[in-house]
């Protein structure tokens, strides 16, 4: 599958070699519990050095004398270990207090807790997780981070309209082949096959159509994956545009590189260039795709 990268990825060889190196670790201040300056003082006292990133409250770990996931501050939920790309996806969702929002694939809860943080723990979040075994980790993270505006449902995201609710914002971080996180999980290089991409792509389109069904008029949907595969990204959005006609438009994501408008012999809608691709060797994140969709 990695051989396919040469078809669409800028400096594919650099990207592949960067994925062999350890990736950057990012932490997000949990503003529900603490302000960034107070957290930085506590981390400095533990000999942990961090630097700012383009996303407020999010820092890159430069040096740490302790495992960053085992400090008393981590256990107290003062920060969450989360890749910058995931934080950007939530930032682009533009959540605010008192909204009613949906997270369609919430485990292990990182983006859900960030949404709650940006909502000042007010309003409501409906968090969906199909895999029952992953729900305890969501509960653990929500508890640790002091989130109280969220309900978790154990249902298939493709049937979320059965809840009979409409939402201001919908986050669909779709289950994918996870090509983009090879730097964190080397087994991803050989554990997936082209047939998996096809199956994944179909499921992603079904989930995205359900997201569009349950979002309020003028509401926003963020579709993201940690895959490089165009079939799981631009192709899904392109098919959505073909199905939905003028009722869905792509809003620009002002980060990363523009999404693809062609792949092989396929041509996509020109507005696909408003989507964003993040690459490890260019953006110091895991591989990530973000599309911001507005429902008219």
């Amino acid at each position: 599958m990695i051989g396919r990268f040469l078809e669409y990825m800028p400096d594919a060889e650099k990207c592949i070699s960067s994925m062999e190196a350890p990736s950057s670790t990012y932490i997000r201040t949990n503003a529900i519990k603490i302000d960034p300056n107070s957290l930085l003082c506590m981390l400095e006292a533990r000999d942990i050095e961090v630097e700012s990133t383009e996303v407020p409250d999010v820092f890159r770990v430069v040096r740490s004398a302790l495992p960053i996931g085992a400090t008393p501050e981590y256990l107290a939920g003062l920060y969450y270990i989360q890749d910058l790309s995931s934080c950007i996806a939530v930032e682009e969702l533009g959540v605010s207090s008192l909204q009613q929002n949906l997270d369609m694939a919430c485990a292990p809860g990182g983006k859900t807790t960030f949404m709650a943080q940006r909502m000042y723990n007010s309003g409501a979040i409906c968090a969906i997780e199909y895999n029952r075994r992953r729900i305890p980790s969501v509960i653990s993270n929500l508890s640790r981070c002091g989130v109280m505006n969220t309900s978790i449902y154990n249902i298939d995201a493709r049937s979320v309209s059965n809840l009979n609710r409409r939402f201001d914002r919908v986050l669909l971080d779709a289950p994918c082949t996870c090509e983009g996180i090879i730097s964190k999980d080397k087994t991803r290089k050989i554990s997936h096959f082209p047939s998996d991409i096809e199956e994944s792509s179909q499921r992603q389109l079904e989930m995205l159509l359900e997201a569009i069904r349950v979002v309020k008029q003028h509401g926003l949907v963020i579709y993201s994956t940690c895959s490089f595969a165009p079939e799981e990204n631009e192709l899904v959005i392109n098919e959505l545009l073909e199905i939905s006609g003028n009722s869905v438009v792509i809003e620009p994501v002002h980060r990363g590189l523009p999404g693809l408008t062609r792949f092989g012999d396929r041509r996509f809608h020109p507005s696909l260039s408003r989507t964003a691709r993040l690459y490890p060797h260019l953006h110091n994140t895991v591989g990530f795709f973000i599309a911001k969709l507005k429902v008219r």
């Binding site: 969501v138 929500l142 505006n149 309900s151 978790i152 154990n154």
Partner: peptide, 8 residues
């Protein structure tokens, strides 16, 4: 299918 609400 509700699994959890708010904070325990």
């Amino acid at each position: 299918s509700l699994s959890y609400i708010g904070m325990l």
